[in-house]
Design a protein around this nucleic acid. Structure first.
Length: 566
RNA sequence: GCACUCGUAGCUCAGCUGGAUAGAGCACUCGCCUUCUAAGCGAGCGGUCUCAGGUUCGAAUCCUGACGGGUGUACCA
């Protein structure tokens, strides 16, 4: 239910009836329960424009507000706030209707678009480490969210499969394979290190590595084959992580850097033709206004750079995939790069004016001392290890609870452990830097995914115990049920906000608030106990069912599973 | 040097398109399991919102400056 826009309409009507002009009506959440459910603060600004007393205007508006349907009560407070209470019968009716809705009251966006979401983008030469977590799960959540709201989403995994380090890696791979048995790329990190050692100690090997770089680029069959087998193995590692993470990326979503290789000369040509780039110190450069340094699109030795590849990718996404919105879920450190690339792409007409280009940046993962993790120090935790440890800890935490069979134990541990890791990341605002902490990441207390999963399991437990049909209407019997019902209907507004701002943490905050209310309701309002009237029992069961459905859908968008029992 | 970004409770963080007494979790203190899962609920403790100016009826939020952390700044991605 789009509550805020419904309320805006009601206020607009009231303003109109009261003969007051206003251009934009913003409804906000009430800051406290005593102040109602929602509030309209716009009167103070209007009063200034009209040079009138704000409380006087507010009272006039309040007199004209329709309180026969959605709204039960309005009140002027403080300097001129208008506090709004939603009507219990209306809440009861709408929540009851929502029970039959698979989308739990969430509609579709008015103008669905084709959206490209570029995320994860691991480097094939390296093992995925904790630093790759954010792009992968933020991107995956946004893709799922956009899709749920009705957009057509094309996921793009722009993997790094091209560059000088691959000469070294495939030369080493070949060397390892000569004794007949194919080397398994069990540990990529180790493989890279070993190759590097070999590169540093042997001139012969180093020369071969350099030679292989050239050979891949010129299309040498043998080298390409080695390269392809290396990429396949490395991608296999990533897919293992995606699977563990419950992330919806498949091989069909992979569009590697190398895919754009043969289009790069054309990009340079276009830039030259349109006089956007110039040659400077032997390199092909674009000088943008306001930037002291140019963006180099072609090196003096003729090689291309990542800006070139990104321009080619933008062209492809806008013209071949025909996306109208292109989102890059990439580290905030690349903000300047994307700003420049986007500007060039639009200047050169590689992307039409009406295509929305967005860099969805996120903060850097820091170590305990507040310094960014450094890959080269070797101290970075492998993503697989983190995830496995999370599941182990979860299993350890639930094994004595005596509610699970042996096979349930593993799937529940997985849901809880992986959920904790993802939730810990998704629940902080994506722009801020992130201090990595094992214990916090694997914590099961307070605002963690387990809190949501636990509430869901409690609801399922009640339904199992009830073990009969649930029918009948929701009745709002008290303050806590009122607040719970309002919160349930806020789900759509929350998702819309999360989608516009591309902020998954908007969803986690909402779920936390919802579950907190449910826990209170659970404590205060018994459902199955003796002496509860049937009508009330059914209403409370229905409220619980709806809460469970919203929790499940919310977590599903975050890629976190619910479980029946904990 | 220039640019971007962040600075809120002991710790980790919300809130930032200006609104009422700045909110959570963790930690700490206390209370609640013979009845729907106590990984829960209730109560308490804890704040010069980095600092200084400015705009405003009203500033954690907007503007300017200072200080501090992080990041980016011509041939890596």
């Amino acid at each position: 239910m789009k509550i805020k826009s419904e309320l805006s309409k009601i206020i607009e009507k009231a303003l109109h009836s009261a003969n007051i002009q206003a251009n934009e009506i913003v409804i906000s959440d009430a800051t406290k329960p005593e102040f109602g459910d929602y509030q309209f603060n716009g009167v103070m600004r209007l009063a200034k424009e009209l040079k009138r007393n704000p409380r006087e205007i507010a009272s006039e508006v309040v007199e004209h507000i329709d309180t026969t349907g959605m709204v039960s009560k309005v009140e002027v407070a403080g300097p001129g706030f208008i506090n709004i209470w939603l009507n219990n019968e209306w809440l009861a009716k709408v929540t009851t209707e929502t029970l039959d809705d698979k989308r739990v009251g969430v509609g579709f966006v008015e103008n669905p678009k084709r959206v490209v979401v570029d995320y994860s983008g691991p480097n094939m030469a390296k093992q995925m480490h904790v630093g790759h977590l954010r792009s992968t799960i933020i991107g995956d959540t946004l893709a799922t969210l956009f899709e749920f709201l009705g957009d057509e989403v094309i996921r793009q995994n722009h993997i790094g499969d091209w560059g000088t380090q691959f000469g070294m890696l495939i030369a080493y791979l070949e060397e390892q394979n000569t004794d007949g048995n194919t080397q398994e790329l069990k540990d990529l990190e180790q493989f890279y290190k070993d190759a590097k050692v070999r590169f540093d100690e042997s001139k012969e090997f180093a020369n071969k590595a350099r030679e292989y770089v050239v050979k891949i680029q010129s299309g040498d069959e043998h080298c390409l084959e080695l390269w392809q087998s290396f990429i396949n193995a490395s991608l296999g590692h990533c897919e293992e992580v995606y699977k563990k993470l419950n992330v919806n990326l498949t091989r069909n979503d992979v569009r590697a850097e190398s895919f754009y290789n043969d289009q790069l000369p054309k990009i340079i040509e276009t830039l030259k033709e349109k006089n956007i780039s110039t040659t400077s110190n032997g390199a092909e450069c674009v000088f943008l206004e306001g930037d002291e340094n140019p963006i180099i699109v072609q090196k003096s030795d003729g090689g291309f750079l990542y800006a070139t590849t990104d321009l080619a990718a933008l062209y492809f996404r806008a013209n071949v995939l025909k996306a109208k919105r292109i989102c890059y879920v990439v580290d905030a450190r690349q903000a300047q790069h994307f700003k420049q690339v986007f500007a060039i792409a639009k200047m050169a007409g590689l992307v039409d004016e009406d295509v929305i280009l967005e860099h969805i940046g996120f903060g850097t993962m820091m170590d305990k001392g507040g310094k960014p993790f450094k890959t080269r120090d070797g101290g970075v935790i492998k993503l697989v290890d983190l995830l496995d440890e999370a599941v182990v800890r979860a299993k350890d935490a639930i094994k004595d609870r005596d509610v699970h069979s042996e096979e349930e134990l593993n799937s529940v541990a997985r849901a809880i452990g992986i959920g904790a890791v993802k939730y810990a990341d998704l629940s902080i605002s994506r722009e801020s830097n992130y201090i990595f902490n094992w214990d916090k990441m694997l914590s099961f207390e307070g605002n963690t995914s387990l809190y949501m999963q636990y509430a869901y399991a409690r609801i399922q437990s009640i339904l199992r115990k009830h073990n009969a049909e649930v029918s009948g209407k929701i009745i709002i019997g008290d303050e806590i049920e009122h607040r719970l019902a309002v919160m349930l209907l806020k789900f759509e507004d929350t998702l819309i906000k999360a989608s516009i701002e591309a902020t998954p943490h908007t969803i986690t905050s909402y779920l936390y608030e919802l579950v907190t209310l449910f826990m209170k309701f659970y404590e205060q309002n018994p459902i199955l106990k003796d002496g509860i009237e049937n009508e009330v029992k059914m209403s409370r069961l229905q409220l619980s069912i709806l809460t469970g459905a919203v929790i499940k859908k919310g977590l599903e968008i975050l890629g976190i599973e619910v479980v029946e029992k904990i």
